[in-house]
Structures are given as structure tokens and as C-alpha cells.
Design a protein around this nucleic acid. Structure first.
Length: 441
RNA sequence: GGGGGAGUAGUUAAGUUGGUUAUAACGUCGCCCUGUCACGGCGAAGGCCGCGAGUUCGAGUCUCGUCUCUCCCGCCA
């Protein structure tokens, strides 16, 4: 066979619906065997879905059991199936021949064929590569993949260039104690907290850039919305007229991604009963306005006057849902005290920055804003904070030699997935989560 | 960094004021069932009750220590 022919052969993806009445060969893994008298239903994981096949004869004699890889020859026939995990439901395969090509030494320690995967988180993550075989677990990551694809295609269509910045760095973008340090051939190095500096460098090159990559936070947190390594969806673009350009870009990106999801993974969305938000406009409220609303409407006295507590994020989400019928809300003009040095101050009030968070269903999923592009302004702000600009020369040089007015954001992929799918813990929206105690698998 | 909850068959859980043989469901194994779809029916196997010490005639149960998990708060995406 010619190489090109092999490539074509391997890339063929079977669509059963088009093959009713035809003889086919099916390669897959046995998901579930339901034996009856004289015949059996064998559900087979193949072509990214679970297909029902019917074996006539004594199934015990074939050696077929759950977890076996099998090659089936049979005829596609019409059927009316009700199994939630089986797709398509309108046809099945009548087996003429079944051969076992690989068979597991032991059965799984838990049942992945039940409607609910009924195991604790510890076991779920210890044997993540097995627990993910459950159709509902699998659906989470099928959807996440599609979500990333939707976001990436939007950005590419809008002329953003995908970049790859280093994850081993000499300085953190955000400073503080929440950075992992490591020895780098005798030098002190860190795992990146954010690709911020690199995005800004590249704005000076490509004007519009994005990156979808891991970032690391050494915070010793133990909550349902924190992990120590997560995927940051970052974009940054230049020639902005105002920081509202950034909000609009994100809203358009999410709208595009959600529409992509609905087309791409309807079965998975249905299986997990996901309500995909219909984004029209996302309301934007100023930070101090939000504080006022929460105080007035919900009688909660703010503890921290420069940031929103999680309870306040939940309450403002609730307010916006009722008043504007939106599951998202932008909160803008955060106090300068709570934002990093590269954040642009508000021209009308230097106590505030032209920055924002995006809250989705009660959880902060994005932080972004306009950045300082002027060298003198940047150096002055750094000095004002007791930082030594000389330590950040590798960064400030980009500004010295000129950058356009620009801004961007970082979006937590796992948090977006968690809120979209209404999953209780962020770890459940992470394939191989890293928390304070987990380093494997 | 602070606070709560929990560790009992392969898995998920129940287990009363300490008391004789530690329950159930699912899974597994055996037998039965020709259209299941969370298939069904009958039967069986399966336990150092997280680990270590203590109190007691007697501990899954009470006490202390220890390890692990889980949730909440702070911080953040």
C-alpha cells in the first residue's frame, strides 16, 4: 500500500448511520456485556462513541468480557435503543464474527458502566486514566477540548498569533510568595505564574497574540476552585482605543466558543445536561458600584475594601442574573492597590485601574485589563511601589523601545469548564489535577 | 495559614447508650432467562472496621497519637 493510501485508511472515521444494511468491520473496546439466554448485547467503545452490537450464541465461549479489545465483523441494522451512553440510538451491529485481540488481566476496581461513577475523589484521581473511561467523566474532557477549539478558532480568525512562552523563568509576573522556585544549573529560577511579560513582548511583534498553556501557583489553598497548575487562556492585543475593547473581545470569544460547542458536542452536552449560556451582552459594573449594590441589596458588609470576597462574587452574579438575565458580569475599575504594577491607572482616578474581572456563575474566571505602554509611566509606577526597575530591565526594555496601547486577559480554562458544566470541584474539571498533595498520576 | 467532617468487603454506604456470627446496594463468581438498554431471577464467595497505643470482662463504637481523604474560610484564574 502507498503511504498516502495508508494515511487515508487510518483517518477514516466510521459513521454507522450511513451504513445501515452494510457489512462492516468494527474495532473497539468492550464497554459492557449484557448476556441473555442464547445471545448477548455487547456495547463497544469505538470511533469515539459507544455502539451496541448483538452476538447470537453463547458469549462465554468467545472469551469476550469488559475491557477486551475486539474486532467485529457484522451487519449494521436498524434499532431503537434507549441506553443513555449509546450513540447512535437508531442502529446496531449484528455480529457475524468476533475476535479478541487484547484482554485485561484484571477487571477495573470500580464500575464505569453505571449511570453515575460512584467513587470518591481520591480513588477517582489515583486511577484517573480509568475513571475517565466513564462516559460522563469522558464527556467533561470532550467538551473541554471542544471549548478550547472554539476559543482558538475565534482567536485565529481574528488574526491573533499563537505563541509559546517559557514556563521556566527568572522573575514572576505577579511577585509574592505564590511562586514555585527551582534550581536552574546553579541559578534561581521559577515556574511561571503568567505569560504576561511575553505576551506584551509579542504584542510589539504581532500586535495580536494568544497562548493556551499551563501556569503554576504555589498557593497553599484547599478550595473547590483552586489547583496549583492550571491552563491559562491568555490573549493580548494592541491598538486598542479603550480597555472596553478587551471586554468586547472576550465576550465575542466566549459567544463564539459556546456556539461552537453546541454544534460540535451536542451529545456530551446533553449527557451532562449542560445549559450553555446564550451570550447577548455582558453587563459591566464598576468595582465600587458592585460594593454598593452588595451592601444595599444583600446587607453584606465588605471585609476587604479593595477586592471582592467569593461571597460577593456569588451575590453580584445573582443580582446580574435577575436584573440583566446574564450569567456573566464584568467588574471593572479595580483599585490600583490590588493590581499588578503593569496595570494601567484610570486617567480620571489614579486610585483605580482600567482593569476588570469576569465573573461567571459566581466564580471569577478572568482577570484582564489595559497595560501601561509608556516607559516613563511604567518605571514611575514601579519605583512608587518600591520595586527596582533595573531588576525588570528585560521587561521594561520592550516599553523603552515602544509598544502600542494594549491590553489583554487571562482566563482559567478549568474554572470556565467547572462553571459551564456545573461541576462541584475544579479538580473534576481537570484531567490530571495538581494540588498540595497530588503529584501523580 | 485557620476551622469543620470522614476513613467499615473490589466500590459506595449503614452500623443505636460499648455486648455474641459486622449489614445493604453495586461489582465479581455459578446457575437460569431470545430484545436488554442502570436488564431481570436464584445462589455463593468476599472484612486485620486506615495504622499505633490506651480504657474495659469485652472496642467498628470511648480516649490519645498518627497517616490519608474531604469540605469551608483566606488568596486567586
Amino acid at each position: 500500500m502507498e503511504i498516502s493510501a495508508i494515511v487515508e485508511e487510518r483517518s477514516k472515521y466510521l459513521n454507522l448511520l450511513d451504513l445501515v444494511g452494510e457489512e462492516i468491520e468494527l474495532k473497539g473496546v468492550v464497554f459492557k456485556v449484557r448476556g441473555l439466554s442464547g445471545f448477548a448485547f455487547i456495547l463497544v467503545n469505538a470511533y469515539g462513541t459507544i455502539i451496541q452490537t448483538v452476538y447470537t450464541g453463547e458469549i462465554g465461549e468467545t472469551g469476550v468480557k469488559e475491557g477486551c479489545s475486539v474486532v467485529i465483523k457484522g451487519k449494521v441494522s436498524e434499532a431503537k435503543l434507549k441506553d443513555a451512553f449509546v450513540e447512535p440510538k437508531s442502529c446496531e451491529v449484528q455480529i457475524n464474527e468476533i475476535n479478541v485481540v487484547s484482554s485485561p488481566k484484571e477487571l477495573l476496581p470500580f464500575d464505569i458502566t453505571k449511570k453515575k461513577l460512584d467513587i470518591g475523589n481520591d480513588l477517582k484521581f489515583d486511577l484517573r486514566y480509568l475513571s475517565m473511561r466513564h462516559p460522563k467523566e469522558k464527556a467533561i474532557f470532550r467538551i473541554q477540548s471542544s471549548l478550547v477549539q472554539g476559543i482558538r478558532s475565534f482567536l485565529i480568525e481574528n488574526k491573533f498569533v499563537e505563541i509559546r512562552s517559557p514556563k521556566i523563568v527568572a522573575e514572576g509576573a505577579e511577585g509574592g510568595a505564590n511562586i514555585f522556585s527551582m534550581d536552574y544549573f546553579g541559578q534561581k529560577a521559577y515556574l511561571t505564574q503568567s505569560p504576561q511579560f511575553y505576551k506584551e513582548f509579542c504584542v510589539g511583534v504581532f500586535d495580536r497574540v494568544f497562548e493556551i498553556a499551563p501556569v503554576f501557583r504555589a498557593e497553599k489553598h484547599n478550595t473547590n476552585r483552586h489547583i496549583n497548575e492550571y491552563t491559562s487562556i491568555d490573549f493580548e492585543f494592541g491598538q486598542i482605543d479603550s480597555f472596553y475593547d478587551i471586554l468586547n473581545m472576550e465576550a465575542a470569544m466566549l459567544k463564539h466558543a459556546f456556539e461552537h460547542l453546541k454544534k460540535d458536542v451536542p451529545y456530551e452536552l446533553d449527557l451532562l445536561q449542560v445549559e450553555v449560556p446564550d451570550i447577548k451582552t455582558i453587563p459591566a459594573l464598576k468595582f465600587w458600584e458592585v460594593k454598593e449594590i452588595i451592601k444595599k441589596e444583600y446587607k453584606i458588609d465588605p471585609k476587604d475594601s479593595f477586592d471582592l470576597a467569593p461571597i460577593e462574587e456569588i451575590k453580584i452574579s445573582d443580582y446580574v442574573k435577575k436584573k440583566y438575565d446574564s450569567e456573566f458580569v464584568f467588574i471593572t475599575h479595580y483599585p490600583t492597590a490590588k493590581r499588578p504594577f503593569y496595570a494601567m491607572d484610570d486617567a480620571e482616578d489614579p486610585e483605580l485601574t482600567v482593569s476588570f474581572d469576569l465573573i461567571f456563575r459566581g466564580v471569577e474566571i478572568t482577570t484582564g485589563g489595559q497595560r501601561i505602554h509608556d516607559f516613563d509611566q511604567l518605571v514611575a509606577k514601579m519605583s512608587g511601589r518600591g520595586m527596582n526597575p533595573a531588576d525588570f530591565e528585560f521587561f521594561t526594555n520592550a516599553h523603552k523601545y515602544g509598544l502600542p496601547p494594549h491590553g489583554g486577559l487571562g482566563l482559567g480554562l478549568e474554572r470556565l469548564t467547572q462553571r459551564l458544566l456545573n461541576v462541584d470541584n475544579i479538580k473534576s474539571a481537570t484531567m490530571f489535577p495538581r494540588d498540595m498533595t497530588r503529584l501523580t498520576p
